[in-house]
Design a binder for these strands. Structure first.
Length: 355
DNA sequence: GTCCTGGCGG
DNA sequence: CCGCCAGGAC
């Protein structure tokens, strides 16, 4: 029982260190290089003694940031935005000041799909009347009252737990961690993994997540002085943090929009709308990452953050994965997929389903 | 019973 | 590509 080693149980951690990131950046000016570099894999870099100076917090907004995670979005997608987009429809993505390496190269091209503003506006209106699970939560306390560093760490942990987990369940888990003082790298690092597992229990994949929490806490302690990484690339090196979470943490934790947070809702809906099937490109995108890149080609940057909660809520209530309710959708007239996949009960006949 | 979810490994 | 994780939705 008491074999809580001080070091990571995985020896590969040490043997395979270094040489971690290679070609993660999407900024390759060379069109031929593209982003092919399989940037995933090989997250196991735990170099400690290396640099520590470049991790200066670049807090842009002091403690005022109220919410964590998707709750922070709530304010962004209010009606106040409608005027913003209608006025700014020609804004190219690279017009805004963002991080170092974003869509500056790819941004210039890419024509917006027809009527995209009408569609967004229509979805916003539907979201105002329908109540989606994503926006019926008040958990202002979880992250807001904390100092910036702890708030960021809470954002990271909350993101980690949130996938495959209902918002209220995730909220409960975060609250339990908070009550036990387990929302900092130091305390998590000192806590038994089994304890964490129990506290976060109801969330999906809790075993994996408890393990990832321990690893993340240790990495943050050793490499970032207990703070969280402040760049996309470094966030992606954390176990359990993929593109979706990394962008979310950049948006909410650092207030630094490096890209669109594309989950399966955004992925699915953008494909149904034909928003990511430009003439020159492939017909459709097959992965969320491809969707993110295609979407970033034309979507004005003001929409990069609010589009996620907007489409997530829409995807939970109307444009559902199975049997989308096109009859209730006010923008179905603009949707090339409307009423096409709603009838087929099981359009997927991949599996023989015989046993 | 099958799909869905994000990240990950094979 | 497939499957695993844990659990909910259908």
């Amino acid at each position: 029982m008491s074999r809580i080693l001080l070091r990571m149980p995985n020896t590969r951690f040490y043997s395979k260190c270094l040489q971690s990131k290679e070609e993660i950046s999407t900024s390759a000016p060379n069109p031929e290089v593209r982003v092919f570099a399989r940037r995933k894999r090989q997250k196991k870099a735990l170099e400690v003694s290396n640099e520590e100076s470049k991790n200066e917090p670049i807090e842009q907004k002091p403690c005022g940031l109220p919410d964590i995670e998707e709750f922070a979005y709530k304010k962004a997608n209010g009606p106040a935005l409608s005027s913003k987009i209608s006025g700014k429809l020609e804004a190219t993505p690279d017009a805004l000041v963002v991080g170092t390496e974003v869509a500056s190269e790819i941004g210039a091209r890419g024509e917006p799909p027809a009527n995209w503003e009408k569609v967004l506006e229509g979805i916003r209106k539907m979201r105002a009347t329908e109540d989606a699970p994503v926006d019926s939560m008040g958990c202002e306390k979880a992250g807001s009252s904390l100092p910036p560093k702890e708030r960021r760490f809470a954002v990271l942990i909350s993101s980690l737990l949130s996938s495959q987990t209902k918002d209220n369940v995730n909220h409960g888990a975060i609250q339990r961690l908070l009550q036990n003082g387990l929302l900092t790298a130091e305390t998590i690092d000192k806590t038994d993994e089994a304890t964490i597992k129990d506290l976060i229990y109801p969330v999906g994949f809790y075993t994996r997540k408890a393990s990832n929490m321990k690893k993340i806490a240790k990495i943050c302690l050793l490499k970032y002085d207990g703070d969280i990484p402040s760049s996309l690339e470094e966030l992606l090196l954390l176990p359990g943090i993929g593109p979706k979470m990394a962008h979310l943490v950049m948006n909410v934790g650092w207030n630094n929009v490096q890209g669109i947070c594309v989950d399966t809702h955004v992925h699915r809906i953008c494909n149904r709308l034909g928003w990511v099937s430009q003439p020159g490109r492939k017909q459709k995108t097959s992965t969320p990452e491809e969707t993110r890149e295609a979407l970033q080609l034309w979507l004005p940057k003001e929409e990069w953050v609010p589009i996620n909660p907007l489409l997530v809520g829409f995807g939970q209530t109307i444009c559902t994965p199975l049997r989308p309710r096109c009859g209730m959708c006010s923008v179905s007239e603009f949707c090339p997929s409307a009423f096409k996949e709603s009838s087929g009960p099981s359009s997927k006949l991949k599996k023989p389903s015989q046993k």
